[in-house]
Write a protein that binds this DNA or RNA. Sequence first.
DNA 1: GAGCTCATGTAAAAAGTTACATGATTAT
DNA 2: ATAATCATGTAACTTTTTACATGAGCTC
Lengths: 189, 189
Amino acid sequence: MSLRHILLGMLQQPHSGYDIKKEFEKSLRNFWRAELSQIYPLLQKMEAEGLISSKVGASDIGPRKRIYRRAAKGSRELNAWLSDGPVVGTERIGYLAQVYFLGHLKDHDKAITFMEELLAYMRRWLDLLESSEAEWRANDPRYPDGLPDSEFYPQLTLDLGLRKVRANVEWCEDCLERMQKRRQRARAG
Amino acid sequence: MSLRHILLGMLQQPHSGYDIKKEFEKSLRNFWRAELSQIYPLLQKMEAEGLISSKVGASDIGPRKRIYRRAAKGSRELNAWLSDGPVVGTERIGYLAQVYFLGHLKDHDKAITFMEELLAYMRRWLDLLESSEAEWRANDPRYPDGLPDSEFYPQLTLDLGLRKVRANVEWCEDCLERMQKRRQRARAG
DNA sequence: GAGCTCATGTAAAAAGTTACATGATTAT
DNA sequence: ATAATCATGTAACTTTTTACATGAGCTC
């Protein structure tokens, strides 16, 4: 179970459930997602277990907020997770499962359309990552290797995100070329 | 829900639950995994829904086997899944979540050990993929673009697997270099 | 006979998704 | 006043994991 550990990691800084959700959408989307309906009950459970503590935000404007903080026990659990070695071999990639069985679509054009859609998605994603990197670089002269640990390690994950998405874009392009050649051959032969 | 669709895809050929599990370990491990305790009940459920049919293997030696086949309704559902466009944005990558919070390990050496373990894993995986490709290429003169659809599309997923794992290896190497420089600076400064 | 692989399952728990409910604050 | 966003939650369901149970056949 990683979500609880991710929450512990995020609670280096005090956060509400809502804040955490925004953080997922901003910085962690490359490798994890979670819904509010999973976050809120888990925070409650983790508080009951003594991993984190909370209090309702005091003198804020806006609606009430429940702010969580990491407790010492939570720090130890986070440490154990990181010390246990990399969590690998659990990835599930839906679109690759689809590509594997794409031959089931008897119409070659449909398979090509599928791959074009995938390429379009990957290009949008790459755009997003590239602008997010450019912005970071422009706004912080320490970028990337002078950053403090709390930002250096996130930067590493952005770096891998960029490499992977670039690999995906190139792969989609090559696939399309190969599929188009097959279509031509199928029509000719 | 993709596992049911993956099972439908696999049942292009008749398979037992046990066969399916072996297929996951052999060919689909790049993008999906499933336990027998998930496969068996799901096959039963899908049979009840009329997506697949089964009969107990007849004159085989060895223990009894229940062999499943895809029904017409299952074919239509598989088609719908592939026609609905790529399933994206659902990936979860545990080791990247860990890297993101690696700064929590106050000891730089521990972070470096983590990354070394990850690199070792990625290299082993790359070896596996490369030998599996070499074997395929050696045993089938049609490899890769002369393969029939039922093998061409799986080959595309192997190709992306190779690209991604290579990107991972290079990234780990670069990360280690950058982390070692930081460690030196930390010791010096 | 002991241990391994083949083969099929059940039970219980954990994790994640989808849908729904509620109310405050802010922007138009 | 209306809509959007902020903010927290519950309920029902689906998906996945972990642990357990059973028995046949095969190898040493």
